[in-house]
Amino acid sequence: MDPMEVFKIEVEGDEAFGAKKYRELIMDILQDLGLIRSIGRLYVYIDIKKPFFSVYGLLRSGIPPLTAKDVGDVMKVQGGYQVKINDEEHMSDLLRALWERYGRERVDQPARDVLIIASDSSPADLMVADLEAEFMQDLTDALVRIAPEGFRNRRNEMTKDSFFFIAAEEQLTQEMVSEIKEKIRGMENA
């Protein structure tokens, strides 16, 4: 079963096998990078004779930025605040954010997963990582991996809730881009 609501793929010419395999390939790569749950609808249009590869996708609701209280437990202690880390993956991001706000001399790390901040202001709402920006980076990486290799003329239009990616061997022209957009709109409304 597809985890996506809609996943359509169209390949020009007699390439039914290629279309089927590309579907599996896209699923494999999105699953590998852990992106599949964040994409709601996906439309892929390929013409191998011209040749170009295009994807249009709609994203599921936005991801809120990661704050210090998401990464660990923030407690008021004597002389400041203590953060007990639960998710070590973002430790370096948290440290960088704390150093930036409080200065290195006021951030102490007595144990591997404990940070003590000598300040009266709570770090609970401090932004540790912008997950949405990370997601967008991962998505671009996935699209570059999915596109056939050698299609080096690329265009990537990303908004908060959608992305549109074209890769081609030859130079991308305005007519070509609008033709592809038209085609994808047709797929969307079909």
Partner: peptide, 10 residues
């Protein structure tokens, strides 16, 4: 052994 992809045209 030459390893190619999924499109017969290519």
């Amino acid at each position: 052994v030459f390893i190619y992809g999924n499109f017969q045209e290519c």
